[in-house]
Design a protein around this nucleic acid. Structure first.
Length: 468
RNA sequence: GCGGGAUUAGUUAAUCGGUAUAAUAACAGUUUUCCAAACUGUGGUGAAGGGUUCGACUCCCUUAUCCCGCACCA
């Protein structure tokens, strides 16, 4: 019988990820580093498979989207133009009495003062006005002890390209907090070099960095992570239909890889960025975190990005539509998803425990075969029979050019099955005494434990058929 | 970032101001004709730094990390 989880799923996932070499906390031998994780052998394979499937759907299977891999470092003015330097931060204010901390802009909004994306001077001016009116009180302890607002920038700075003691807003090189900036900067080159016609998209996967105040919940929120983003450039007249289309396309992608419909939902943003016209999140119901959490954002961004970069760079980033005989700055619909969030989502969904009649628990990851780090493991039935071992090993040598696969002759057969179950390997092939007679092997299904007897030569075709 | 709790082997736990234990996992061997069997052997542990002490895993301080709650998540 399948066991219901007892609220310890996150602990079990973290433990499995470490024990089986998927994910390690960074810098463990130095005591760890918060919000940074390293991916071990199976973690890399799994993560790369997720990335490949995303790229296949977003680039390979489409005529209207092209790839890009832009640099992490961009010209400092990029982030001034995008509004990140001014707005990508949390203005916070502390209560001197009870030590509670609040978002300063949220406090102002309670008084009807629009402070989203406002500068720190503006926020402190408004806070001072409220102080004079004696309206400023701590929402927690009720005393008027709120101090000056301070800015916690989410942007990670570097000394890239300049001596470290002379950093200014003009020359500081930020580590990008999102990958889409690189897409906007290469919009023009892409258009010129690939004769793309609107509507078209640019997709890329890459590392980004954010100074999260509290990086928690394993790999769900980290300071260094990978984003998979796609920016779709189009005629503003088509925004509504294109936006709806992308919502559906992205939602359906999750269903393709075994995420059940009832664990997915859309969340509509009520509070939009000033340039945005519509924004939805795809949320997944994480059992390990007790509810729905955002995995992907789908946003209609208007022409804010291109027009800002055009304004700050002095380079025209518009588009002339030959058919419609009109010139305009393209509008953008963006899809943006965190790779590590998908990693956690797929494991959260795949983690399964079955209690056997003997009272033993079998743990396995019910991963889609396309995502599983190892596709097939090959064992000899017994390890003290050299002819079984060598036949199995030769079979492994033959198959490994087709799929990521493993050979294992450690311990006994049951133990080897369990190890593969835990890393989500969909098939295990066993070479037994019949193999020596008639070249047949058994192939066992991870989810059912059932075996079929097939010919050695048919293994590759068998697996390929089931990975479509 | 605030408040509270915690940190002993890969994991789960025990003990003790005086040589740190066990189970399990790992590895090697024997065995085993399909689901973590058994036997033998091997390696591995006090988060980091400082203090008190003849002697600290144990007492004290600092830092880090984790968990719970608050706040935050453009």
């Amino acid at each position: 019988m399948e066991q219901k989880n007892d609220g310890k799923l996150m602990e079990k996932i973290i433990s499995l990820c470490k024990r089986r070499g998927f994910v390690f906390a960074s810098s463990e031998i130095y005591g760890g580093m918060a919000g940074v994780y390293d991916y071990g052998h199976y973690g890399v394979l799994f993560k790369d498979n997720i990335k490949k499937e995303w790229e296949k759907n977003m680039i390979q299977m489409r005529e209207d989207i092209v790839g890009l891999d832009s640099a992490i470092f961009m010209h400092p003015r990029t982030w001034v133009a995008s509004g990140h330097v001014a707005g990508f931060n949390d203005p916070q204010v502390d209560c001197h009495n009870c030590k509670s901390r609040f978002r300063a802009d949220h406090i102002l909004e309670d008084f009807g003062i629009q402070a989203d994306k406002a500068g720190i001077e503006f926020i402190n001016d408004e806070l001072n006005k409220l102080r004079e009116l004696k309206k400023l009180v701590c929402q927690n302890c009720g005393k008027a002890e709120l101090g000056e607002a301070r800015v916690f920038s989410m942007m990670v700075k570097s000394n890239f390209g300049s001596p470290i003691d002379s950093l200014t807003e003009e020359n500081v090189a930020y580590l990008r907090p999102e990958t889409c900036g690189g897409i906007y900067l290469e919009y023009k080159n892409t258009l010129d070099s690939l004769h793309s016609k609107l509507p078209f998209g640019i997709a890329q996967v890459g590392k980004v960095f954010r100074n999260e105040i509290a990086a928690r919940q394993f790999i769900f929120r980290t300071r260094e992570f990978e984003q998979m983003e796609m920016q779709y450039f189009h005629d503003p007249l088509d925004t509504v239909s294109i936006f709806e289309n992308w919502k559906q396309t992205r939602y359906d992608w999750y269903l393709l890889y075994g995420i059940p419909d009832d664990k997915l939902r859309f969340y509509k943003h009520e509070k939009l960025a000033h340039y945005a016209t519509d924004a939805y999140d795809v949320e997944y119901d994480f059992e390990s975190m007790g509810g729905f959490k955002e995995v992907e954002g789908i946003h209609a961004r208007g022409n804010w990005d291109l027009s800002q970069h055009s304004k700050f760079s002095g380079i025209a980033l518009d588009y002339y539509d030959e058919e419609k005989k009109k010139r305009f700055t393209p509008h953008i619909v963006e899809t943006s998803v965190g790779l590590a969030r998908l990693f956690l989502m797929f494991i959260d969904n795949a983690y399964t425990e079955i209690l056997s009649e003997e009272g033993e628990t079998r743990v396995f990851l019910k991963l889609d075969p396309r995502l599983a780090p190892i596709k097939v493991a090959i064992f000899p039935l017994l390890k003290n029979k050299p002819e079984l071992v060598s036949t199995a090993h030769n079979l492994y040598l033959k198959i490994r050019s087709e799929f990521m696969c493993e050979f294992d002759d450690n311990g006994n057969i049951g133990k080897r099955y369990r190890r593969q179950d835990e890393i989500g390997t969909p098939w295990c092939v066993v070479v037994d005494f019949d193999t020596l007679e008639d070249n047949s092997v058994t192939i066992r299904d991870r989810d059912t434990g059932l075996q079929e007897r097939i010919q050695k030569e048919d293994i590759v075709a068998y697996i390929k058929e089931r990975m479509k």
